[in-house]
Amino acid sequence: DYYEVLGLQRYASPEDIKKAYHKVALKWHPDKNPENKEEAERKFKEVAEAYEVLSNDEKRDIYD
């Protein structure tokens, strides 16, 4: 669930989505996790995908 990936509720505002994305993206950035790079890359891609969908009103409506 994209909301879960970003740690958000379904009623999150666009500002909340952006803030959550930056927080979680920093947490899972591969450069910040050199000891667990493969998992970090996978999680970072999930976070980016979730943000791409939830930050676009049209894609978010379809997802919801």
Score class of each variant (00 low, 15 high):
Asp1Ala: 08
Asp1Arg: 04
Asp1Phe: 04
Tyr3Trp: 02
Glu4Pro: 00
Glu4Val: 05
Glu4Ala: 14
Val5Gln: 03
Val5Ile: 12
Gly7Ser: 06
Leu8Val: 15
Gln9Leu: 02
Gln9Arg: 12
Gln9Asn: 13
Arg10Leu: 04
Arg10Ser: 13
Arg10Asn: 08
Tyr11Leu: 13
Tyr11Asp: 15
Ala12Ile: 00
Ser13Ala: 12
Ser13Arg: 11
Pro14Ile: 13
Asp16Tyr: 00
Ile17His: 00
Ile17Gly: 02
Lys19Gln: 13
Lys19His: 14
Ala20Asp: 00
Ala20Gln: 07
Tyr21Leu: 00
Val24Trp: 12
Val24Pro: 02
Val24Met: 10
Leu26Met: 13
Lys27Cys: 09
Lys27Ser: 06
Lys27Asp: 05
Lys27Gln: 09
Trp28Ala: 06
Trp28Thr: 08
Trp28Asn: 08
Trp28Val: 05
His29Met: 11
His29Glu: 07
His29Lys: 10
His29Trp: 04
His29Phe: 05
Pro30Val: 08
Asp31Asn: 11
Lys32Cys: 08
Lys32Glu: 11
Asn33Arg: 06
Asn33Tyr: 06
Asn33Asp: 08
Glu35Arg: 06
Glu35Ala: 13
Asn36Gly: 11
Lys37Met: 08
Lys37Tyr: 13
Lys37Gln: 04
Glu38Asn: 08
Glu38Cys: 13
Glu39Ile: 13
Glu39Leu: 12
Glu39Arg: 11
Ala40Asn: 07
Ala40Tyr: 08
Glu41Leu: 12
Glu41Asn: 04
Glu41Met: 10
Glu41Pro: 02
Glu41Trp: 07
Arg42Leu: 14
Lys43Ile: 05
Phe44Asn: 10
Phe44Thr: 05
Val47Pro: 00
Val47Thr: 09
Val47Ser: 05
Val47Ile: 07
Val47Tyr: 04
Ala48Val: 04
Ala48Gly: 12
Ala48Trp: 06
Glu49Asn: 08
Glu49Pro: 00
Glu49Ile: 04
Ala50Lys: 03
Ala50Arg: 00
Ala50Asp: 00
Ala50Ile: 00
Ala50Ser: 03
Glu52Asn: 12
Glu52Val: 08
Glu52Gln: 14
Val53Phe: 13
Val53His: 10
Leu54Glu: 02
Ser55Met: 14
Ser55Val: 11
Asn56Asp: 11
Asn56Cys: 13
Asn56Pro: 00
Asp57Val: 14
Asp57Cys: 13
Asp57Thr: 12
Arg60Thr: 03
Asp61Gln: 11
Asp61Glu: 14
Ile62Arg: 15
Tyr63Gln: 06
Asp64Met: 03
Asp64Gln: 09
Asp64Gly: 04
